[in-house]
Every structure is written in structure tokens, then in C-alpha cells.
Design a protein around this nucleic acid. Structure first.
Length: 337
DNA sequence: CTTCCACCGGAACCGTGGGAAA
DNA sequence: TTTCCCACGGTTCCGGTGGAAG
């Protein structure tokens, strides 16, 4: 059944992209000044999850690498590296040796100084999930670095575009905005077809089955690809030669659960305790939530800290908050079947 | 209308851990 | 070794907000 499982990883960047030519061309043209030694304006990529932002950014930078011999690039996920120091460190890491810089005790902003004095090929820095960045001023600082150009990727569905726009544009003038829309079912089918042809043995899955996956994925390529992978795994376990409708029906909830579980695993023990309370109560008011959390845990954190936890879990799309002050309730985001 | 209440989130501050310098 | 330095998670303090009560 499985021929090459790499192609079923959602993070895999294909050699040819499907249905994103306009976006690739747009981003390429924004970055083009690099090839004649000028620094381009930052590019801002926005769109819902699984609409291909990260993939297209990586793809376009790879293309640029092939055209231009002298080029560095660095990808930073602001989920993982969300503080000023971490982001700067990660960028520096991609550009030069960082052996002599360690987590602590390096004088304030020596990293930024290093980057400013960096004397090497131009560098394209991709900041993914940039709306998670704690210190927005960092964007401005990075923008002013001579050798570095920015690709910013932001999720547009949670945060209203207006506020994000205002915050970014106040710091970055002339930012080139590239919007991504959800994939349509047909587009998702083409993406899945491409992956399936490379990853699976011939005729392992029919178009109607791909359509089933695409329809159930809500335009999210990550969900679609994860579902295909889960179904393929199941088929292999069953020694089946075909991915059938039944297998996909099984794989759908599992794939969503897999994605959700990844987020849950990233929580600390205390965050997890808060999450468990919400999950158990289905729906709970802030005051009750904190009381319940206090009851369950020894050495509970302060209410303010729990509020930060909740904010984080909302950003992870694990919980939702509805209503304002008085009628506010927290709910779990459940994987729909 | 004013006051009250619960909640939100910014900002300043604190304790800790660990590498660097002395 | 000791001392210094600083990022980081957490806490304290507090002003803002919007619906409910007086």
C-alpha cells in the first residue's frame, strides 16, 4: 500500500505546487529585488489554517535558492520561539555560528547587533504564526536590518484582520499583503491526488474517495492530508489493497483527533488541568473554572496565570470563549465527526 | 443615571536557573 | 570557586469594560 510515506506528511513541501500559482508568482515578485541586490519590502501572508501559506512560503524560498547562489534563509515558527530572544537566536543560528552565544548572560540585544553587522549573503527570514509573537517591536527592528527580508505568515481566522493590519502596518510600511483563501473541494482533490500518486501504490485510491476526504476537510489541506495518511495506515494494517469509503469514514475523526492531540500534548501539567476541567464540564464560567482548578491541583497558579493559559489554549484552538464579562463561558473545541 | 461586580489583560516586578566573567 | 548577568515563567497591582442592580 505505502510506497513513500514522506509525501503524506502535511509539512512536506512538494516540488510542484497545485492551485497556488498566483500566490507563488506574487511572492516571487515581492522577493525579486534580492536577485539584483536590493532589499524587498516584507511580505504578509494571511489566510485560514491549511490554506497553503507555510507551504508556499517554503516553496518560493526554495525556488529563490535555486536561482540565486548567494542566499541564506531561515524559517522561524513563532509558536515555538515566541520571545524576542528566541526569534533572534533562531535567525542568527541560520546565518552564522552561534556557538559563542548561549541562552543567558549575553548582553541585551547583542543578537540584534550581530545581525545588523552581519556581512554575508542576503537572508530571507520567514516568521510563521507571527501573530503569536510577544514583542511586536521586533518586527520593526528586523525590518530595519539591511541584509534581511521578511516573510510574515499570520492566521487570519481567529484574529480580525483589522487589528492585525493596524499593528503590523504601524511598524512596517509598504508591507505586501498576499491573501490565501480556503481550498475548494476540487482543489483539495488535486492536492490529494498528487500526494497519493507519489506515496501510494498505483490505484490505491479512487477519485470518489479523495472527494470524500476533501469534502470532509473543510478546505483545510492539513486535515485532508492527515486523513489520507491515517486511512493509508489503516489500509496497510488490514492488508487492504484499496482505500475504501469505510476506511475513510474511520480515518476522518481519527485524523482530527490526531491534530488536536498534538496541541494538547504541548500543554504543561497545569494548563492540562485547566483544560481537563473545561472538557469535563462542557461549558463553564470563568470563576467556577478557576475554583475547580484550585480544588484539583496542589500549588495552584494565580488566576492571572490561568487567564494566560486560557488565552494560549484559545490560540491553539483547543477551547473557545463566548460572551463578555457577565455571561462568559469557556468550551472545549471537540473534534467533530 | 450611578454604583457594583466579575472578568480581562497590560505593566511592573520577582525568583530562579545557568552560563560567563572574575 | 564566587559573583554577575539576564531570559523567563509567574505574581501583584491596577485600570478598563459592560451588564446588572440600586
Amino acid at each position: 500500500m505505502l510506497h513513500d510515506a514522506r509525501y503524506l506528511q502535511a509539512e512536506f513541501v512538494p516540488r510542484e505546487v497545485v492551485h497556488r500559482d498566483a500566490e507563488v508568482n506574487h511572492l516571487s515578485s515581492v522577493l525579486e529585488p534580492i536577485t539584483w541586490g536590493e532589499s524587498p519590502e516584507p511580505a504578509l501572508l494571511t489566510g485560514p489554517t491549511g490554506s497553503g501559506k507555510t507551504c508556499i512560503a517554503k516553496f518560493t524560498v526554495d525556488e529563490l535558492h535555486q536561482e540565486s547562489l548567494d542566499l541564506d534563509s531561515q524559517y522561524v515558527n513563532c509558536w515555538e520561539d515566541h520571545s524576542r530572544f528566541q526569534v533572534l537566536y533562531r535567525i542568527l543560528d541560520g546565518v552564522q555560528s552561534t556557538v559563542d552565544i548561549h541562552r543567558q548572560s549575553t548582553p541585551r540585544d547583542v543578537l540584534l547587533e550581530r545581525l545588523r553587522e552581519h556581512d554575508g549573503p542576503p537572508c530571507v527570514v520567514t516568521l510563521d504564526e507571527v501573530d503569536q509573537l510577544e514583542d511586536k517591536d521586533l518586527l520593526y527592528d528586523l525590518h530595519r536590518l539591511p541584509k534581511f527580508s521578511l516573510i510574515l505568515i499570520a492566521n487570519s481566522q481567529e484574529e480580525p484582520m483589522a487589528t492585525l493590519d493596524a499593528r503590523l502596518s504601524s511598524r512596517l510600511r509598504g508591507c505586501e499583503h498576499i491573501r490565501f483563501h480556503r481550498y475548494t473541494t476540487d482543489e483539495l482533490v488535486d492536492i490529494l491526488r498528487e500526494r497519493a500518486d507519489r506515496a501510494l501504490v498505483p490505484n490505491a485510491i479512487q477519485r470518489s474517495e479523495l472527494e470524500l476526504i476533501a469534502n470532509a476537510s473543510g478546505g483545510d489541506a492539513r486535515v485532508a492530508i492527515t486523513t489520507l495518511r491515517t486511512a493509508a495506515r489503516k489500509a496497510e494494517q488490514n492488508n487492504a489493497s484499496q482505500i475504501t469509503e469505510d476506511l475513510i469514514e474511520c480515518a476522518l475523526p481519527e485524523a482530527r483527533e490526531e491534530i488536536r492531540q498534538k496541541s494538547i500534548d504541548a500543554l504543561t501539567d497545569h494548563q492540562r488541568a485547566v483544560y481537563d476541567v473545561i472538557e469535563e464540564f462542557e461549558e463553564i464560567a470563568p470563576g467556577d473554572l478557576y475554583q475547580e482548578y484550585r480544588n484539583r491541583v496542589e500549588n495552584p497558579k494565580s488566576d492571572r496565570t490561568v487567564r494566560n493559559y486560557l488565552k494560549k489554549m484559545i490560540r491553539y484552538n483547543l477551547v473557545t470563549a463566548e460572551g463578555s464579562t457577565q455571561d462568559r463561558v469557556y468550551r472545549c473545541v471537540h473534534s467533530r465527526t
